[in-house]
Amino acid sequence: MTATATSPGVAAAAAPGTIQGARPPRAGKPKRRWTRTSIWGLLFTLPAALYVLIFHVIPVIYGFVLSFTKYSPLSRSGPEPIGLKNYTTLLSDPDFGNALLVTGRYVLQVLPITVIIALALALLVNRPFRGVGLFRSALYIPHIVSLTAVSMIWLWMYSHNGLINDVFAFFGLPDQSWLLNKGAALNAASAMRIWKALGSNMVLLLAGLQSIPKELYEATRVDGANRWQSFLYVTIPGIRPMLVYVVAMDIIYLAQGFAEIFVLTQGGPLGSTTTVNYLIYTQAFQYNQFGSASAMAFVLFAFIVGFSLLSIRGLMGRQK
């Protein structure tokens, strides 16, 4: 498990560099040779490399092998190879199909809204004025508070006597059981996740905005462009690498929604909020089906990789 998994923004720091192609250290000396120093360099990287190998790489291989077996941790015997059966069963498993659809819908209804609002907020705080730091921090707070804790707050807000129903009552609208209603539960979870994801997206997009040279705006203004045009032709291309990164990271994290589902709905009502990750958890740790749960994890993995690449292509593509 990557320790970064729970906090998108935290892991956020890693990837854009890799997307943009991080500059090799010391501007890439042409030929590296084994010297006393470079041997020490190798030694210094070994503890981290061994750890990553043992706790990140080997588990992936191990999990892939498990996905071709039938294995209950309670049984005395080890994993029993059954070939592709876990995967073929998943093809016709209505629960898994449903979980994929729920996960996809969840990502699609959170992602665009949170990115657009986050961009608007980033534009608002991208100017020097007194107290701007205060606003940036305030908007960032939902991101640093744990998903579990914020889900608890929203659980109460959605409860019968909660804030949301109070607001409804104020406008003379009837009470709703937000989390018990099959049609509303996933939307309720999505609304929370939109709110939760704003801060980290905003900070990253702000960094993107601040990397755009001021002269570009000057130049377009001299050319007679209006605000909207300079937004379209300077801002958007300028933040594109960051935008790609934000979207890809959001897809990766949203597609793994678990804690909020566990707290808000436990996958219900009637499976309407059972994300793939939640299904994997129940399959593995309530029904002890480690083999088929592993197969689900790899199908999810494939979907995440696929959609991330697709969105990267889509966003970068227009750049030609």
Partner: peptide
């Protein structure tokens, strides 16, 4: 790497 992939291993 997603959490769910390495969770069981």
């Amino acid at each position: 790497i997603p959490v769910s992939v390495t969770l069981i291993p």
